[in-house]
Design a protein around this nucleic acid. Structure first.
Length: 264
DNA sequence: GTTCTAGAAC
DNA sequence: GTTCTAGAAC
């Protein structure tokens, strides 16, 4: 594939009949959206949700977030709602996969790049580990740093629609000059904020952070399971007592209990 | 978006 | 001498 084709490959997907896209590229599709595997995933899970070309908006309105927000606000909002609904579906599938493959769940970010490299609007759905061999340089990392300002969280973009119209107009500008410099900011861990002297150091640190999170979450899940087992054991052994009296243990549903508050 | 590589940084 | 970054790619 030539350099030129790479930049417009998402647009060509959006124009295609989804049935004709290989399963290695297409993850899911709806009437309005396509979800594809990011060809160079910057985390363990990384997908792109694209709007399909559908009236009233044309392909040029959907080049990126800036061109979308420039056209009719109501129609732009409708497109974002469709992307958001599909993202919710995909997030659920990722969460199941996290649990079955890794035994715990971690955060998933959804958002846009204000200055995208590829044409055609795409919503990133990316797991919050940023552990990937494809994440190689400062630009890659800073573009997904959740607090730096370059990664525009979908929830924030949606909130612009509810805000004062002048605020919407201001945020909708999305001038590259306002965002490009963020990509050159010093490297710092998005979790602990510590400065990192170079990419190899940062990548090693991110792996440690994620391994740490995995260990703590899995221990939390194990404690929870153990407590639930002992509770169900107690309640079955005290069935006779429960029948006599109030049966306190049945009042508290395991789903409601949250040991995060007490253990972390 | 990536790959390649010159030369800066260590 | 080796590692690492950052700009060119026709």
């Amino acid at each position: 594939m030539s350099d030129l084709t790479i930049l417009t490959v998402l647009r060509s997907y959006a124009q295609m009949n989804p049935e004709r896209l290989p399963v290695s590229i297409l993850f899911n599709h709806t009437e309005t959206c396509l979800t594809v595997f990011d060809a160079f995933p910057k985390a363990i899970f990384h997908f792109l949700v694209l709007p399909r070309i559908k009236p009233p908006l044309g392909v040029d309105d959907l080049t990126d977030l800036r061109t979308l927000l420039k056209c009719n606000k109501k129609k732009a909002g409708a497109v974002l709602k469709e992307l958001s609904d599909e993202a919710d579906n995909v997030k659920k599938m990722i969460q199941e996969e996290m649990l079955s493959r890794y035994g715990f769940q971690w955060e998933i970010w959804t958002g846009f790049h204000p200055v995208p490299s590829m044409q055609h609007l795409h919503l990133h759905i990316i797991s919050s580990d940023l552990c990937s061999g494809k994440l190689k340089n400062k630009k890659h990392y800073n573009s997904f740093h959740p607090k730096l300002g370059f990664f525009l969280h979908l929830s924030d973009v949606l909130s612009w629609f509810e805000a004062d119209p002048s605020f919407f107009e201001m945020r909708a500008q999305l001038k590259p000059r306002d965002y490009q410099p963020l990509l050159k900011e010093e490297l710092a861990c998005f979790k602990c904020g510590r400065a990192m002297k170079n990419m190899p150091t940062l990548k090693t640190h991110l792996q440690v952070e994620w391994d740490d999170e995995a260990r703590k979450e899995k221990a939390r899940i194990a404690r929870k399971r153990k407590r639930e087992e002992s509770q169900s054991c107690q309640s079955s052994s005290s069935q006779a007592d429960a029948n006599k009296g109030e049966g306190r243990s049945a009042k508290r549903s395991p789903e409601i209990s949250d040991d995060r508050a007490t253990n972390i």
